[in-house]
Every structure is written in structure tokens, then in C-alpha cells.
């Protein structure tokens, strides 16, 4: 099972996303090397749960931690290229965009901005 991390170090700053300015709290989630390549871990913060991914080309992404089909943690699933497959019914999402890729998942996943600084992974939570 992936390790479950809880950290509380919010830094309120503005981030540029899709050409728009949004206020995000950058939350330190884990060390960059806590996640294997092409893998995912669970990160819980402030009563919410997130999934943080490291892609095969060494980029980091974050989505809501629970599948949109049922209450299941995606961090127990399988990362294949840009896909996260849910461990319960094998529903698939593109974790880079959050797009649901077909039955039994029909609702997209919410994604969050991610940055890596000094070997730490931060996710932007509004």
C-alpha cells in the first residue's frame, strides 16, 4: 500500500494556470523521490484526500484521491503511462487532464497544479 502522508505547510501565493491568475495554497505533499516512476501515492490534507503521480517521463501531477465512480482510493490503482486505473472496477482516468476514459467511470477527476522545488512536491489547493 502506498504510504499515507500528512503535512501542513501552506504558502499562499498566486499561480498562473491556463493564462488565468488563481490563488493557490501550495502544500508540501512529499519528497519527490517518495514516488516511484510511473506510480502514485496518497496524500491526505485538511480532511481531503489527493493522489500524486509521477509519470514515466518524470513529471508530477495531482488529482482528487477518490475515484468518481465510488469511494475508492486511486492510490491503490495502477499507473500506466498517463493513465491511472482504479483498483475497484478498473475505471481509467488520464491523470494529467482528469478525463474519464470510459465505463464505469463517467465523471472527470479534478486535477491540481503541482510544482517540485528543492526535492519536494507541492500541490496547489485553492
Amino acid at each position: 500500500m502506498p504510504s499515507l502522508r500528512q503535512r501542513n505547510s501552506p504558502i499562499g501565493i498566486a499561480v498562473q494556470q491556463n493564462g488565468r491568475k488563481e490563488m493557490s495554497n501550495w502544500i508540501e505533499a512529499c519528497a519527490a523521490n517518495d514516488i516511484d516512476e510511473e506510480d502514485v501515492i496518497r496524500f491526505d490534507h485538511d480532511g481531503r484526500t489527493f493522489a500524486i503521480y509521477r509519470s514515466p517521463d518524470d513529471e508530477y501531477f495531482a488529482t482528487d484521491g477518490l475515484c468518481t465512480h465510488e469511494h475508492v482510493h486511486l492510490a491503490d490503482g495502477l499507473v500506466m503511462d498517463e493513465i491511472i486505473e482504479c483498483p475497484k472496477h478498473n475505471g481509467r482516468f488520464d491523470y494529467k487532464t482528469g478525463e474519464a476514459k470510459g465505463a464505469p467511470v463517467c465523471v472527470n477527476l479534478r486535477t491540481y497544479p503541482v510544482k517540485v522545488e528543492a526535492g519536494k512536491v507541492f500541490i496547489g489547493i485553492e
Binding site: H69, E70, K88, H89, A103, P104
Partner: peptide, 13 residues
Amino acid sequence: PVTWRWSHARHHT
């Protein structure tokens, strides 16, 4: 194939 994909998801839930 559509009906049974969903019924099987329920069987697993």
C-alpha cells in the same frame, strides 16, 4: 456488453 459491464461492476462492489 453495456448492461453486463455495469452489472459486473455492481457484483464487485
